[in-house]
Design a protein around this nucleic acid. Structure first.
Length: 197
DNA sequence: AGGAAGATCTACT
DNA sequence: GTAGATCTTCCTA
């Protein structure tokens, strides 16, 4: 199996990281077997100047990872769901990328059991759904995703042609930035929702 | 101590 | 398409 993506991958503008994470593989090591899926939908979040970011309002105990080391997990809860982000920013910056949807690859039966459904398309096509399918919760906060020794890491997947990528405003936020910061693989059936450019 | 908001999900019509 | 459940965290007192 391939190596984990190196730390340098995440030491860039969150928007660049969000786009480049499309097509990569998220791997969850559970007991002695693997659950994995290809990342098909992401969103970029910035620092205190981003009204939709959890960094808005300054550093708190729960959002500290956004100021921390790129390539680590940032996990927090909304509406009773855990959401998985990857810390991503330029040196001395603040930011993270939300993983919004996966295309399931390995361990589909286990994911189905974790989710309590046999509908493959609904296994991991949303930020709260994929964390449940892969058994990701707050205990994995700030875990290093650049190490193959971690229970959660990211490896290279397939190359995505820029023309395969669609984008839209971020979903579920009340006040968004002018720039469209949600990215997805066009036509992929595991994207949470298809939107126009 | 209590209330409200929020990067969501499910079930139902 | 809409309503209600959900639960962590923050803000105010």
């Amino acid at each position: 199996m391939k190596e984990a993506l190196p730390r340098e991958f995440y030491i860039r503008d969150p928007k660049i990281v969000a786009i480049n994470l499309l097509g990569k593989i998220l791997v969850r090591v559970l007991d002695s077997f693997y659950l994995s899926g290809m990342i098909v939908e992401t969103e970029a979040y910035y620092g205190e100047d981003d009204p939709a970011s959890r960094a808005r309002g300054g550093m708190k105990k729960y959002n500290m990872p956004m100021w921390g080391e790129p390539g680590r997990a940032f996990i927090y809860g909304v509406h009773g769901n855990w959401l998985l982000n990857i810390v991503a920013h330029e040196p001395n910056g603040v930011g993270a990328v939300l993983i919004r949807a996966l295309e399931p690859l390995e361990g589909i039966e286990v994911m189905a059991a974790n989710r309590g459904t046999n509908n493959i398309r609904r296994l991991t096509n949303g930020p709260g759904r994929l964390t449940k399918a892969l058994k990701i919760d707050r205990s994995m906060n700030y875990l290093d995703l650049t190490s193959r020794n971690s229970q959660l890491f990211i490896t290279g997947g397939r190359e995505i042609d820029p023309r395969e990528i669609g984008w839209s405003h971020r979903i579920g936020v009340r006040v968004d930035l002018d720039e469209k910061l949600r990215f997805f693989i066009k036509g992929n059936e595991f994207v949470s929702r298809e939107d126009s450019n």
